[in-house]
Design a binder for these strands. Structure first.
Length: 419
RNA sequence: GUGGAUGUAGUUCAAUGGCAGAGCUCCGGAUUGUGGUUCCGGCUGUUGUGGGUUCGAGUCCCAUCAUCCACCCCA
């Protein structure tokens, strides 16, 4: 019996691991600069948490959740997204009652039972950030600026920011009525998916990729024309602050967020050149979610992005992130007594943080030199009979080929100096 | 969930239905004391898995699993 990794998952192998660590550290550092603090929630929660927050009609809840019963028959789900658990914790810790503003961020695995595809996995890692406690448009801009600066500071060039306002439940109702009125006479011309969308989620009619539907969508009424006074003003102010923050963006009235809890500002960062899964990160305001989940009414805004797509994008742009795994020193011993002399040096250096590699199974000098070469170590430390008798070692610079004799009791301090 | 493509050595790929191969990697050697280049030699396979057709299947058929691409959806 052979075991294999579950579908849609992957191992983060040593060759990739340092990239992840690097990205997570970058995210944590930037979050600290913006005054955000890390929160970690369990990877499973009561299923009902997601059903209520994401909307029970959403695809995520309907067909993509990993559900299971525990031993007492309680229903849980592996978290498909990060916002609902954070909101749950926010309310459970009474931050809705005791604090003015709460700034939180998280990174961790999410789970969706989806058909795997480029940039889409069943277990995937998200980085996300949530702001609670103010509906001031400054914070919309702050959260968006954070996301934008995080991504662009990594060197990505082929990204752009799109923003939209999906309004509040008030304007939404009016807009959907207008949308349906517009689409009704065209019902027969729509593709099958869109005929379904007409009933289930009319907003999705706008971003259908079937050409004939796109033509119809072009003249459809825009959400932006149906914003009420407050929502319109808010959206204008968000743009104002984004300009002040020097963030370039484009208003795209067709941005639709997948989860039901969003209101007002919605935004996405798109990468050109990733194939179909080109959304690097997305987010928006959710001013009604905290109350809907049983807390005191608290406006909030946040975003989430996927590390896998981010890595694909970085690779696509040739941004390597290679902090490499090469040793500083490759040690070579010729013969048993040389090996005996080498051991204390190797372990001393390692305990000082120097990366030292040595392979006792390679005995010939040539084999050891070859190994030293292919390890890309900067230095090679050689001990043989000659060195033993003179109580010294050879230190060879593998790039220049230069080598020098160093007294055996001095080599560690010498190496620690030159590395 | 729907549609399409693909699964052969560690890896990238070959192989009219007729003996499973090559490059790279890896290992060894060219006087165990100087690497990269070169030369010589060597290891590595239930051809994803299970059935079927056939004298004979890596090749054809069915099922299944996985990967990739697109839809759907989304990070």
């Amino acid at each position: 019996m052979n075991y294999s990794i579950p579908r849609g998952t992957y191992d983060i192998l040593p060759s990739q691991s340092h990239k992840w660590q690097y990205l997570i550290r970058r995210f944590q550092d930037l979050a600290a600069a913006y005054g955000y603090h890390e929160i970690s929630t369990p990877i499973f929660e009561q299923s009902a948490l997601f059903e209520r927050s994401s909307g029970s009609s959403s695809d995520v809840v309907q067909k993509e959740m990993y559900r299971f019963l525990d031993r007492k028959g309680r229903e849980f789900a592996l978290r498909p997204e990060g916002t609902a658990p954070v909101v749950r914790s926010f309310i459970e810790n009474s931050w809705d009652k005791t604090q003015g503003r709460t700034k939180l961020f998280y990174t961790g695995p999410m789970f969706r039972y989806d058909r795997p595809q480029a940039g889409r996995y069943r277990q995937f890692w998200q980085y996300g950030l949530e702001f609670f406690g103010s509906s001031h448009p400054f914070y919309d801009a702050e959260v968006i600026a954070f996301l934008w600066n995080f991504l662009s500071s990594l060197g990505l060039k082929k990204i752009h920011l799109e923003i939209n306002s999906v309004g509040c439940p008030n304007c939404l109702k009016e807009y959907e009525t207008a949308l349906k009125a517009y689409y009704h006479p065209h019902l027969d011309e729509l593709c099958g998916d869109c005929q379904n969308r007409f009933e289930v989620n009319p907003k999705r009619l706008l971003d259908c990729k079937v050409p004939s539907c796109g033509v119809i969508a072009q003249n459809a009424p825009s959400q932006l024309d149906y914003l009420d006074e407050d929502c319109r003003k808010h959206f204008e102010q968000v743009q104002h602050y984004l300009n002040l923050a020097n963030i370039e963006f484009k208003v795209n009235p067709r941005i639709v967020r997948g989860l039901d809890y969003y209101s007002h500002t919605a935004f996405e960062v798109i990468f050109e050149g990733l194939g179909a899964q080109n959304t690097l990160a997305g987010g928006g305001r959710y001013n009604y979610l905290v109350q809907q989940m049983g807390g005191r009414a608290t406006p909030a805004i946040g975003f989430a992005g996927g590390f896998e797509r981010l890595l694909l994008a970085l690779e696509e742009e040739g941004l390597a992130l290679d902090t490499d795994l090469v040793p500083d020193v490759y040690a070579i011993a010729m013969g048993e007594s040389a090996q005996k002399a080498l051991m204390p040096i190797i372990f001393y250096l390692r305990n000082q943080g120097v990366k030292v590699d040595y392979d006792p199974e390679k005995t010939s000098f040539k084999a050891q030199m070859k190994a030293a070469n292919s390890s890309h170590a900067r230095y090679c430390l050689i001990i043989g009979e000659d060195e033993l008798s003179s109580n010294s070692v050879i230190l060879k610079n593998m790039e220049t080929g230069e080598q020098q004799n160093v007294a055996m009791d001095k080599v560690s301090t010498h190496l620690l100096q030159i590395l």
